[in-house]
Design a protein around this nucleic acid. Sequence first.
DNA 1: GCTTTTCCTGACCGTATGGTCAAGAAAAGA
DNA 2: TCTTTTCTTGACCATACGGTCAGGAAAAGC
Lengths: 205, 205
Amino acid sequence: MNNPSPIRKPSRIQKRNRKLILDAALEVFSAHGYRGATLDLIAAEAGLSKPNILYYFTGKEEIHITLLNGLMDTWLAPMREIDPAGDPLEEILRYVHRKLEMSREFPRESRLFANEIIQGAPRIGSHLKAGLKPLVDETAALFEGWMAAGKLAQMDARHLIFSIWATTQHYADFDAQVQVLMQDQPVHEGADAFLDTLYRRLLTI
Amino acid sequence: MNNPSPIRKPSRIQKRNRKLILDAALEVFSAHGYRGATLDLIAAEAGLSKPNILYYFTGKEEIHITLLNGLMDTWLAPMREIDPAGDPLEEILRYVHRKLEMSREFPRESRLFANEIIQGAPRIGSHLKAGLKPLVDETAALFEGWMAAGKLAQMDARHLIFSIWATTQHYADFDAQVQVLMQDQPVHEGADAFLDTLYRRLLTI
DNA sequence: GCTTTTCCTGACCGTATGGTCAAGAAAAGA
DNA sequence: TCTTTTCTTGACCATACGGTCAGGAAAAGC
Protein backbone atom coordinates (compact mmCIF):
# COMPACT_ATOMS: atom_id res chain seq x y z
CA MET A 1 0.00 0.00 0.00
CA ASN A 2 2.84 2.33 0.74
CA ASN A 3 6.18 1.84 -0.97
CA PRO A 4 6.33 0.61 -4.53
CA SER A 5 6.31 -3.16 -3.94
CA PRO A 6 9.37 -3.70 -1.80
CA ILE A 7 9.42 -7.33 -2.90
CA ARG A 8 9.15 -7.38 -6.68
CA LYS A 9 11.99 -6.01 -8.79
CA PRO A 10 11.69 -2.33 -9.78
CA SER A 11 9.69 -1.51 -12.86
CA ARG A 12 10.92 0.60 -15.74
CA ILE A 13 9.07 3.65 -14.40
CA GLN A 14 10.37 3.07 -10.90
CA LYS A 15 13.97 2.97 -12.06
CA ARG A 16 13.56 6.10 -14.14
CA ASN A 17 11.83 8.12 -11.42
CA ARG A 18 14.07 7.03 -8.58
CA LYS A 19 17.02 8.12 -10.68
CA LEU A 20 15.35 11.45 -11.50
CA ILE A 21 14.74 12.03 -7.81
CA LEU A 22 18.23 11.11 -6.70
CA ASP A 23 19.80 13.30 -9.38
CA ALA A 24 17.65 16.22 -8.32
CA ALA A 25 18.37 15.53 -4.66
CA LEU A 26 22.12 15.56 -5.29
CA GLU A 27 21.80 18.95 -6.91
CA VAL A 28 19.66 20.39 -4.13
CA PHE A 29 21.32 18.80 -1.09
CA SER A 30 24.83 19.69 -2.25
CA ALA A 31 23.86 23.28 -2.94
CA HIS A 32 21.84 23.96 0.20
CA GLY A 33 22.80 21.32 2.76
CA TYR A 34 20.37 18.89 4.34
CA ARG A 35 18.38 21.46 6.24
CA GLY A 36 18.37 23.97 3.41
CA ALA A 37 17.04 21.47 0.90
CA THR A 38 13.28 21.18 0.60
CA LEU A 39 11.09 18.52 -0.93
CA ASP A 40 9.51 21.19 -3.08
CA LEU A 41 12.90 22.14 -4.52
CA ILE A 42 13.78 18.51 -5.17
CA ALA A 43 10.40 17.89 -6.75
CA ALA A 44 10.75 20.92 -9.02
CA GLU A 45 14.28 19.92 -10.01
CA ALA A 46 13.13 16.37 -10.77
CA GLY A 47 10.06 17.53 -12.67
CA LEU A 48 7.77 15.51 -10.43
CA SER A 49 5.11 16.43 -7.90
CA LYS A 50 5.95 16.40 -4.21
CA PRO A 51 3.51 13.60 -3.33
CA ASN A 52 5.02 11.57 -6.12
CA ILE A 53 8.47 12.00 -4.59
CA LEU A 54 7.02 10.61 -1.40
CA TYR A 55 5.58 7.69 -3.30
CA TYR A 56 9.12 6.54 -4.08
CA PHE A 57 10.80 7.50 -0.83
CA THR A 58 9.36 7.49 2.65
CA GLY A 59 10.73 10.94 3.39
CA LYS A 60 13.44 13.54 3.01
CA GLU A 61 15.88 11.69 5.21
CA GLU A 62 15.58 8.44 3.28
CA ILE A 63 16.43 10.28 0.06
CA HIS A 64 19.50 11.75 1.70
CA ILE A 65 20.68 8.47 3.15
CA THR A 66 20.08 6.63 -0.12
CA LEU A 67 22.14 9.27 -1.92
CA LEU A 68 25.06 9.07 0.48
CA ASN A 69 25.08 5.29 0.47
CA GLY A 70 24.88 5.12 -3.29
CA LEU A 71 27.69 7.59 -3.83
CA MET A 72 30.02 6.34 -1.12
CA ASP A 73 31.38 3.56 -3.32
CA THR A 74 32.06 5.85 -6.26
CA TRP A 75 33.64 8.32 -3.95
CA LEU A 76 36.03 5.78 -2.46
CA ALA A 77 36.80 3.99 -5.71
CA PRO A 78 40.09 5.83 -6.38
CA MET A 79 41.44 4.71 -3.03
CA ARG A 80 40.46 1.10 -3.72
CA GLU A 81 42.30 1.30 -7.03
CA ILE A 82 45.67 1.95 -5.42
CA ASP A 83 47.74 -1.02 -6.52
CA PRO A 84 49.84 -2.61 -3.78
CA ALA A 85 52.01 -4.13 -6.50
CA GLY A 86 52.60 -0.84 -8.29
CA ASP A 87 55.33 1.70 -7.81
CA PRO A 88 54.60 3.44 -4.47
CA LEU A 89 55.27 7.02 -5.53
CA GLU A 90 53.46 6.66 -8.84
CA GLU A 91 50.49 4.95 -7.22
CA ILE A 92 50.03 7.75 -4.72
CA LEU A 93 50.49 10.45 -7.33
CA ARG A 94 47.92 8.73 -9.48
CA TYR A 95 45.55 8.69 -6.50
CA VAL A 96 46.09 12.41 -5.94
CA HIS A 97 45.36 13.18 -9.56
CA ARG A 98 42.25 11.02 -9.60
CA LYS A 99 40.95 12.76 -6.47
CA LEU A 100 41.59 16.17 -7.96
CA GLU A 101 39.86 15.09 -11.14
CA MET A 102 36.86 14.01 -9.13
CA SER A 103 36.76 17.39 -7.43
CA ARG A 104 36.49 18.96 -10.83
CA GLU A 105 34.06 16.50 -12.34
CA PHE A 106 31.90 15.73 -9.32
CA PRO A 107 31.91 18.83 -7.12
CA ARG A 108 28.33 18.19 -6.04
CA GLU A 109 29.24 14.83 -4.61
CA SER A 110 32.18 16.37 -2.79
CA ARG A 111 30.04 19.10 -1.28
CA LEU A 112 27.35 16.61 -0.34
CA PHE A 113 29.80 14.71 1.83
CA ALA A 114 31.46 17.87 3.08
CA ASN A 115 28.15 19.30 4.24
CA GLU A 116 27.30 16.10 6.03
CA ILE A 117 30.64 15.73 7.79
CA ILE A 118 30.94 19.36 8.84
CA GLN A 119 27.63 19.02 10.62
CA GLY A 120 29.05 16.09 12.56
CA ALA A 121 28.01 13.32 10.15
CA PRO A 122 24.66 12.88 11.92
CA ARG A 123 23.24 10.70 9.16
CA ILE A 124 26.27 8.68 8.07
CA GLY A 125 28.38 8.39 11.18
CA SER A 126 27.82 4.65 11.24
CA HIS A 127 28.70 4.35 7.57
CA LEU A 128 32.01 6.07 8.14
CA LYS A 129 32.90 3.46 10.71
CA ALA A 130 31.65 0.53 8.65
CA GLY A 131 32.67 1.57 5.16
CA LEU A 132 35.42 4.14 5.31
CA LYS A 133 37.44 3.09 8.31
CA PRO A 134 38.41 -0.42 7.15
CA LEU A 135 39.50 0.94 3.77
CA VAL A 136 41.58 3.68 5.34
CA ASP A 137 43.13 1.26 7.81
CA GLU A 138 44.08 -1.00 4.94
CA THR A 139 45.48 1.80 2.83
CA ALA A 140 47.42 3.26 5.76
CA ALA A 141 48.92 -0.15 6.38
CA LEU A 142 49.93 -0.38 2.73
CA PHE A 143 51.60 3.04 2.88
CA GLU A 144 53.38 2.10 6.09
CA GLY A 145 54.64 -1.06 4.46
CA TRP A 146 56.06 0.97 1.60
CA MET A 147 57.72 3.35 4.05
CA ALA A 148 59.18 0.51 6.10
CA ALA A 149 60.54 -0.98 2.90
CA GLY A 150 62.31 2.30 2.23
CA LYS A 151 60.27 3.08 -0.85
CA LEU A 152 58.68 6.24 0.54
CA ALA A 153 59.83 8.84 3.03
CA GLN A 154 58.77 8.09 6.58
CA MET A 155 55.69 9.86 7.89
CA ASP A 156 52.28 9.29 9.47
CA ALA A 157 50.22 7.51 6.84
CA ARG A 158 46.83 8.65 8.13
CA HIS A 159 47.80 12.30 8.15
CA LEU A 160 49.16 11.80 4.65
CA ILE A 161 45.75 10.54 3.58
CA PHE A 162 44.02 13.47 5.31
CA SER A 163 46.27 15.89 3.48
CA ILE A 164 45.43 14.33 0.12
CA TRP A 165 41.72 14.57 0.81
CA ALA A 166 42.02 18.11 2.11
CA THR A 167 44.12 19.51 -0.71
CA THR A 168 42.09 17.92 -3.49
CA GLN A 169 38.56 18.32 -2.17
CA HIS A 170 39.31 21.92 -1.28
CA TYR A 171 38.91 22.83 -4.95
CA ALA A 172 35.35 21.48 -4.98
CA ASP A 173 34.16 22.39 -1.50
CA PHE A 174 35.64 25.88 -1.36
CA ASP A 175 35.19 26.66 -5.02
CA ALA A 176 33.40 29.93 -4.24
CA GLN A 177 36.51 31.16 -2.44
CA VAL A 178 38.95 29.77 -4.99
CA GLN A 179 37.06 31.52 -7.78
CA VAL A 180 37.25 34.86 -6.00
CA LEU A 181 40.99 34.54 -5.40
CA MET A 182 41.95 33.13 -8.77
CA GLN A 183 39.73 35.44 -10.80
CA ASP A 184 39.69 34.13 -14.35
CA GLN A 185 42.92 32.19 -14.20
CA PRO A 186 42.64 28.48 -14.93
CA VAL A 187 42.53 26.70 -11.60
CA HIS A 188 42.78 23.04 -12.36
CA GLU A 189 46.01 23.02 -14.33
CA GLY A 190 47.79 24.95 -11.62
CA ALA A 191 46.42 22.72 -8.90
CA ASP A 192 47.48 19.62 -10.76
CA ALA A 193 51.05 20.83 -11.19
CA PHE A 194 51.26 22.12 -7.62
CA LEU A 195 50.02 18.93 -6.01
CA ASP A 196 52.34 16.87 -8.19
CA THR A 197 55.28 18.90 -6.91
CA LEU A 198 54.02 18.78 -3.35
CA TYR A 199 53.62 15.02 -3.08
CA ARG A 200 56.68 14.22 -5.16
CA ARG A 201 58.84 16.30 -2.82
CA LEU A 202 57.12 14.98 0.28
CA LEU A 203 57.25 11.30 -0.54
CA THR A 204 60.57 10.93 -2.32
CA ILE A 205 63.23 9.70 0.04
CA MET B 1 11.93 52.90 18.40
CA ASN B 2 13.47 49.83 16.90
CA ASN B 3 17.15 49.13 17.43
CA PRO B 4 18.79 50.02 20.73
CA SER B 5 19.75 53.64 20.03
CA PRO B 6 21.96 53.37 16.97
CA ILE B 7 23.49 56.71 17.82
CA ARG B 8 24.51 56.64 21.46
CA LYS B 9 27.28 54.33 22.58
CA PRO B 10 26.20 50.86 23.77
CA SER B 11 25.19 50.48 27.39
CA ARG B 12 26.61 47.89 29.76
CA ILE B 13 23.58 45.65 29.25
CA GLN B 14 23.75 46.05 25.50
CA LYS B 15 27.37 44.97 25.39
CA ARG B 16 26.73 41.97 27.59
CA ASN B 17 23.67 40.76 25.71
CA ARG B 18 25.04 41.31 22.25
CA LYS B 19 28.04 39.25 23.27
CA LEU B 20 25.80 36.54 24.72
CA ILE B 21 23.85 36.42 21.49
CA LEU B 22 26.88 36.31 19.22
CA ASP B 23 28.50 33.57 21.30
CA ALA B 24 25.33 31.52 21.16
CA ALA B 25 24.95 32.20 17.45
CA LEU B 26 28.50 31.01 16.78
CA GLU B 27 27.71 27.77 18.56
CA VAL B 28 24.45 27.23 16.71
CA PHE B 29 25.41 28.45 13.22
CA SER B 30 28.65 26.46 13.18
CA ALA B 31 26.91 23.29 14.31
CA HIS B 32 23.86 23.46 12.04
CA GLY B 33 24.68 25.85 9.21
CA TYR B 34 22.73 29.00 8.45
CA ARG B 35 19.54 27.29 7.41
CA GLY B 36 19.71 24.71 10.19
CA ALA B 37 20.11 27.31 12.89
CA THR B 38 16.94 28.71 14.43
CA LEU B 39 16.31 31.80 16.49
CA ASP B 40 14.79 29.59 19.17
CA LEU B 41 18.01 27.57 19.42
CA ILE B 42 20.13 30.71 19.58
CA ALA B 43 17.82 32.21 22.20
CA ALA B 44 17.96 29.08 24.34
CA GLU B 45 21.75 28.90 24.03
CA ALA B 46 22.06 32.55 25.00
CA GLY B 47 19.60 32.26 27.86
CA LEU B 48 17.42 35.02 26.44
CA SER B 49 13.94 35.11 24.97
CA LYS B 50 13.46 35.15 21.23
CA PRO B 51 11.87 38.60 21.13
CA ASN B 52 14.78 39.88 23.17
CA ILE B 53 17.20 38.52 20.56
CA LEU B 54 15.26 40.52 18.01
CA TYR B 55 15.52 43.59 20.17
CA TYR B 56 19.28 43.58 19.65
CA PHE B 57 19.41 42.38 16.07
CA THR B 58 16.95 43.06 13.28
CA GLY B 59 16.88 39.41 12.26
CA LYS B 60 18.62 36.11 11.81
CA GLU B 61 20.63 37.27 8.84
CA GLU B 62 22.00 40.32 10.64
CA ILE B 63 23.28 38.10 13.44
CA HIS B 64 25.00 35.90 10.92
CA ILE B 65 26.59 38.75 9.03
CA THR B 66 27.70 40.46 12.24
CA LEU B 67 29.32 37.22 13.34
CA LEU B 68 31.18 36.69 10.09
CA ASN B 69 32.37 40.28 9.92
CA GLY B 70 33.50 40.26 13.52
CA LEU B 71 35.43 37.02 13.17
CA MET B 72 36.98 37.66 9.79
CA ASP B 73 39.78 39.78 11.26
CA THR B 74 40.67 37.21 13.92
CA TRP B 75 40.55 34.51 11.31
CA LEU B 76 42.95 36.28 8.99
CA ALA B 77 45.28 37.57 11.69
CA PRO B 78 47.87 34.78 11.32
CA MET B 79 48.30 35.62 7.66
CA ARG B 80 48.74 39.30 8.46
CA GLU B 81 51.43 38.38 10.96
CA ILE B 82 53.69 36.83 8.37
CA ASP B 83 56.83 38.96 8.57
CA PRO B 84 58.27 39.99 5.20
CA ALA B 85 61.58 40.63 6.98
CA GLY B 86 61.69 37.21 8.64
CA ASP B 87 63.20 33.99 7.40
CA PRO B 88 60.92 32.76 4.60
CA LEU B 89 60.77 29.08 5.56
CA GLU B 90 60.34 29.79 9.26
CA GLU B 91 57.68 32.41 8.63
CA ILE B 92 55.59 30.03 6.56
CA LEU B 93 56.04 27.18 9.01
CA ARG B 94 54.97 29.48 11.82
CA TYR B 95 51.91 30.39 9.80
CA VAL B 96 51.07 26.73 9.27
CA HIS B 97 51.36 26.01 12.97
CA ARG B 98 49.27 29.00 13.92
CA LYS B 99 46.55 27.94 11.50
CA LEU B 100 46.58 24.41 12.87
CA GLU B 101 46.40 25.78 16.38
CA MET B 102 43.38 27.83 15.41
CA SER B 103 41.70 24.75 14.03
CA ARG B 104 42.12 23.14 17.41
CA GLU B 105 41.18 26.13 19.51
CA PHE B 106 38.50 27.68 17.33
CA PRO B 107 36.84 24.85 15.42
CA ARG B 108 33.49 26.60 15.55
CA GLU B 109 34.84 29.61 13.73
CA SER B 110 36.40 27.36 11.12
CA ARG B 111 33.15 25.51 10.54
CA LEU B 112 31.20 28.74 10.43
CA PHE B 113 33.24 29.94 7.47
CA ALA B 114 33.34 26.48 5.91
CA ASN B 115 29.56 26.21 6.00
CA GLU B 116 29.20 29.61 4.43
CA ILE B 117 31.69 29.04 1.64
CA ILE B 118 30.50 25.55 0.73
CA GLN B 119 27.06 26.98 0.12
CA GLY B 120 28.60 29.45 -2.30
CA ALA B 121 29.33 32.27 0.16
CA PRO B 122 25.87 33.82 -0.40
CA ARG B 123 26.19 36.16 2.56
CA ILE B 124 29.89 37.09 2.46
CA GLY B 125 30.80 36.90 -1.18
CA SER B 126 31.45 40.62 -1.23
CA HIS B 127 33.55 40.43 1.92
CA LEU B 128 35.77 37.81 0.34
CA LYS B 129 36.51 40.18 -2.51
CA ALA B 130 36.97 43.23 -0.30
CA GLY B 131 38.73 41.73 2.71
CA LEU B 132 40.35 38.45 1.79
CA LYS B 133 41.46 39.00 -1.77
CA PRO B 134 43.80 41.97 -1.18
CA LEU B 135 45.47 40.16 1.70
CA VAL B 136 45.96 37.00 -0.34
CA ASP B 137 47.27 38.97 -3.29
CA GLU B 138 49.75 40.67 -1.02
CA THR B 139 50.84 37.45 0.65
CA ALA B 140 51.16 35.64 -2.67
CA ALA B 141 53.35 38.46 -3.94
CA LEU B 142 55.52 38.18 -0.84
CA PHE B 143 55.91 34.44 -1.36
CA GLU B 144 56.73 34.95 -5.02
CA GLY B 145 59.37 37.48 -4.05
CA TRP B 146 60.95 34.97 -1.73
CA MET B 147 60.91 32.34 -4.47
CA ALA B 148 62.40 34.70 -7.01
CA ALA B 149 65.14 35.53 -4.54
CA GLY B 150 65.93 31.84 -4.31
CA LYS B 151 64.89 31.55 -0.70
CA LEU B 152 62.06 29.11 -1.32
CA ALA B 153 61.47 26.43 -3.91
CA GLN B 154 59.57 27.65 -6.94
CA MET B 155 55.83 26.98 -7.07
CA ASP B 156 52.45 28.63 -7.46
CA ALA B 157 52.02 30.83 -4.40
CA ARG B 158 48.22 30.82 -4.44
CA HIS B 159 47.97 27.07 -4.58
CA LEU B 160 50.47 26.94 -1.75
CA ILE B 161 48.17 29.12 0.31
CA PHE B 162 45.17 26.96 -0.59
CA SER B 163 47.05 23.87 0.52
CA ILE B 164 47.88 25.42 3.87
CA TRP B 165 44.28 26.37 4.47
CA ALA B 166 43.03 22.99 3.33
CA THR B 167 45.41 20.86 5.37
CA THR B 168 45.01 22.83 8.57
CA GLN B 169 41.29 23.61 8.52
CA HIS B 170 40.57 20.00 7.62
CA TYR B 171 41.14 19.07 11.26
CA ALA B 172 38.39 21.42 12.40
CA ASP B 173 35.92 21.12 9.56
CA PHE B 174 36.10 17.36 9.12
CA ASP B 175 36.68 16.55 12.75
CA ALA B 176 33.83 14.04 12.81
CA GLN B 177 35.62 12.01 10.15
CA VAL B 178 39.08 12.45 11.66
CA GLN B 179 37.78 11.22 15.01
CA VAL B 180 36.34 8.07 13.45
CA LEU B 181 39.57 7.28 11.63
CA MET B 182 41.99 8.13 14.43
CA GLN B 183 39.96 6.51 17.19
CA ASP B 184 41.50 7.57 20.48
CA GLN B 185 44.93 8.46 19.16
CA PRO B 186 46.05 12.03 19.74
CA VAL B 187 45.40 13.92 16.53
CA HIS B 188 46.99 17.28 16.98
CA GLU B 189 50.54 16.21 17.77
CA GLY B 190 50.64 13.96 14.72
CA ALA B 191 49.18 16.66 12.50
CA ASP B 192 51.69 19.18 13.73
CA ALA B 193 54.64 16.92 13.01
CA PHE B 194 53.26 15.83 9.67
CA LEU B 195 52.59 19.33 8.39
CA ASP B 196 56.01 20.46 9.56
CA THR B 197 57.59 17.70 7.49
CA LEU B 198 55.34 18.41 4.55
CA TYR B 199 56.04 22.10 4.23
CA ARG B 200 59.70 21.82 5.13
CA ARG B 201 60.21 19.31 2.33
CA LEU B 202 58.06 21.26 -0.09
CA LEU B 203 59.58 24.67 0.44
CA THR B 204 63.24 23.92 1.00
CA ILE B 205 65.20 24.41 -2.16
C1' DG C 1 11.23 61.01 44.99
C1' DC C 2 9.46 61.34 39.63
C1' DT C 3 10.24 60.95 34.63
C1' DT C 4 12.28 59.13 30.75
C1' DT C 5 14.61 55.75 28.40
C1' DT C 6 16.02 51.19 27.89
C1' DC C 7 15.09 46.49 28.28
C1' DC C 8 12.15 42.41 28.18
C1' DT C 9 8.27 39.15 27.21
C1' DG C 10 3.72 36.56 26.38
C1' DA C 11 0.76 36.19 22.89
C1' DC C 12 0.19 36.27 18.31
C1' DC C 13 0.70 36.10 12.96
C1' DG C 14 1.93 34.56 8.18
C1' DT C 15 4.43 31.52 5.74
C1' DA C 16 7.19 27.44 4.68
C1' DT C 17 7.72 22.78 4.96
C1' DG C 18 7.48 17.71 5.73
C1' DG C 19 4.12 14.72 5.20
C1' DT C 20 -0.91 12.46 4.39
C1' DC C 21 -4.90 10.91 1.86
C1' DA C 22 -8.61 9.89 -1.14
C1' DA C 23 -9.37 9.36 -5.60
C1' DG C 24 -8.33 9.36 -10.38
C1' DA C 25 -5.08 8.15 -14.55
C1' DA C 26 -2.07 5.09 -16.67
C1' DA C 27 0.25 0.50 -17.19
C1' DA C 28 0.38 -4.21 -16.84
C1' DG C 29 -1.73 -8.66 -16.66
C1' DA C 30 -5.47 -11.81 -18.00
C1' DT D 1 -11.46 -6.76 -23.79
C1' DC D 2 -11.81 -6.38 -18.46
C1' DT D 3 -9.32 -6.47 -14.10
C1' DT D 4 -5.67 -5.52 -11.20
C1' DT D 5 -1.77 -3.15 -9.98
C1' DT D 6 1.07 0.77 -10.27
C1' DC D 7 1.56 5.51 -10.61
C1' DT D 8 0.16 10.40 -9.95
C1' DT D 9 -1.87 14.49 -7.93
C1' DG D 10 -4.82 18.36 -5.79
C1' DA D 11 -6.20 19.43 -1.54
C1' DC D 12 -5.20 19.30 2.99
C1' DC D 13 -2.92 19.05 7.79
C1' DA D 14 0.29 19.90 11.72
C1' DT D 15 4.23 21.87 13.02
C1' DA D 16 8.23 24.91 12.93
C1' DC D 17 10.04 29.13 12.27
C1' DG D 18 11.07 34.12 11.44
C1' DG D 19 9.19 37.96 12.91
C1' DT D 20 5.69 41.59 15.23
C1' DC D 21 3.48 44.15 18.88
C1' DA D 22 1.46 46.08 22.93
C1' DG D 23 2.51 46.66 27.24
C1' DG D 24 5.02 45.82 31.52
C1' DA D 25 9.63 45.73 34.29
C1' DA D 26 13.93 47.61 35.19
C1' DA D 27 17.61 51.19 34.68
C1' DA D 28 19.08 55.62 34.06
C1' DG D 29 18.60 60.49 34.45
C1' DC D 30 16.90 64.25 37.20
